[in-house]
Simulated assay, not measured.
Amino acid sequence: MTDEGHRIESVEQLRALVGEPLPRVRDKVRTSLHELDRQWIAASPFCVVSTAGADGRCDSSPKGDPAGFVKVLDDTTLALPERKGNKRVDGYLNVLENPHVGLLFVVPGRGDTLRVNGRAHLVSDAPWFDEMEVEGHRPVLALVVEVEEVFFHCAKAFMRSRLWHPATWDPMAVGSRPQIAKALERPEDSVEELERYYGEQYSTGLY
């Protein structure tokens, strides 16, 4: 077994290492959406949805669509559309057991992010589904989130990672999507078949 090092097992141990947050950081959490939050959500084409089941097992799922795909229903309610996918719905299964969710909204090129925590439920249809239509397709369902906490997160993680710096990008440092699928998911298919599948037609069938 790998040596895990010195494990931290108490709040006191943790605080002794990292210290206490400044009052302005501690108190920046709000319970409803500000106009600036609305603007950020309208500009965001990408959101990560984090959930946990009744047994504590966690899932983080990326969601993406044209900017503004997440609909603000009111100052304390958001709705995220679900498009057709692989049908695993791990996060949605979690929500049926445990409604607590965490959202992270990203705006390309920006280092800061918007975090929203709340309670969620699923709906199969609503009057505003028509407003979520993309390329003639309405959502399969929607995740409705009742906001409990909302705040902006600083840019240091993006600055350290240099995520938006193209000079640091190296997409060929890991196997291609067809290579990964061949090794781990679809060993019965040839690499050539997988390259065709993940080629141009893959991007034309998003909706």
Rank of each mutant, 00 (worst) to 15 (best):
T2F: 10
G5S: 03
H6R: 14
S10I: 09
L14Q: 02
L17E: 11
L22M: 12
L22A: 15
P23F: 04
R24W: 15
R24E: 15
V25Q: 13
R26L: 14
D27A: 05
K28Q: 13
V29R: 14
R30S: 13
H34R: 13
E35G: 09
P45W: 12
V48K: 08
V48Y: 13
S50Y: 10
A52D: 08
A54P: 07
G56T: 06
C58A: 14
C58L: 13
S61P: 07
K63W: 05
K63G: 00
P66C: 11
G68H: 04
V72S: 02
V72E: 07
T76S: 08
P81C: 08
N86A: 01
N86T: 00
K87V: 06
R88I: 01
V89F: 15
D90K: 02
N94R: 09
H100G: 05
H100D: 11
G102A: 15
P108G: 03
G111E: 00
G111F: 03
L114P: 09
V116I: 06
R119D: 03
L122V: 11
V123D: 03
S124W: 12
D125A: 02
F129M: 00
D130L: 07
E131N: 01
E133T: 10
G136L: 04
G136N: 03
G136Q: 04
H137V: 02
H137P: 06
P139Q: 00
P139W: 00
V140H: 05
V144C: 03
V144K: 01
V145L: 00
E148F: 00
E148I: 01
F152C: 01
H153A: 10
F158V: 15
R160N: 10
T168E: 14
W169R: 06
W169G: 08
D170G: 07
M172K: 14
V174Q: 15
P178I: 07
P178W: 09
Q179T: 01
L184A: 10
E185F: 15
P187L: 13
P187N: 10
S190G: 09
Y197N: 04
Y198E: 05
Y202M: 02
S203R: 10
Y207E: 06
